[in-house]
Design a protein around this nucleic acid. Sequence first.
DNA 1: TGAATATATGAACACACGCTCATATATTAC
DNA 2: GTAATATATGAGCGTGTGTTCATATATTCA
Lengths: 128, 128
Amino acid sequence: MSQPSKLTLASTEPCDVEHLDPNATEARRGRLMPARAAEALAETFRVLGDPTRVRIIEVLSAGELCVCDLASLVAISESAVSHQLRLLRNMRLVRARRAGRQVYYTLDDQHILSLFQQGLRHVTEERR
Amino acid sequence: MSQPSKLTLASTEPCDVEHLDPNATEARRGRLMPARAAEALAETFRVLGDPTRVRIIEVLSAGELCVCDLASLVAISESAVSHQLRLLRNMRLVRARRAGRQVYYTLDDQHILSLFQQGLRHVTEERR
DNA sequence: TGAATATATGAACACACGCTCATATATTAC
DNA sequence: GTAATATATGAGCGTGTGTTCATATATTCA
């Protein structure tokens, strides 16, 4: 334990195991999706990975709502909803429309909605 | 601002706005999915909402791999992969099979894989 | 103008999360 | 048994996140 001869960091070499097909892992390495794609994919799921945002998307899937009604339906403070709406706005998942004192929000990404619904199917139908 | 007459907490009442249809929000309230469903849905997405786990699921989608090769392909330490694999194991997304010194992991939830692929489609095809 | 209402936002806090490091367990070979 | 290898896991650390609270902005009404 004198010098750090063995890196703990991720090595780019596979282990010493005799693989059934020694080139299998190397073959897969070439087919990896770009790092940006993996990060974008993770970010997409991360936005959906919070109960409050799940609720917001759920209630908005039936049509636009003002912040106040959103807060009421999601059962959370208006400030908290507003913060989450800003996040969803920056992610281009919702769109805002001002009408007098109210601001109405709508879903701005139907593709996300289909992801949402498929996830919902997974959760409700499938109980192992 | 003397006494806290107005709760900052989420009220269960909608705002004072005259809605086009005053019963619209109340009607939606009755159609909300159960709280457990919303939480399970968010948790499902949360598991997918991390680049490392996205990578793990990606490489496992081509077939089983031992921890060492997983670490190599995902380009992360074996300890970090092992921690993530435990999480994925607890979530029933992957399954472990021991073979001598190695432990081979496989995807244990094809439904998650379809979610993964649909998300991937969203990220790669759709560039607004 | 000023008051009231609806929403937005910055700061702060508590908590969760992903990693590293050290160490433990399991299996094989000697 | 010991040594070596492969994986698992607990502790700790830095960072990110969702909320609350206070305050700011925007709009309407008198």
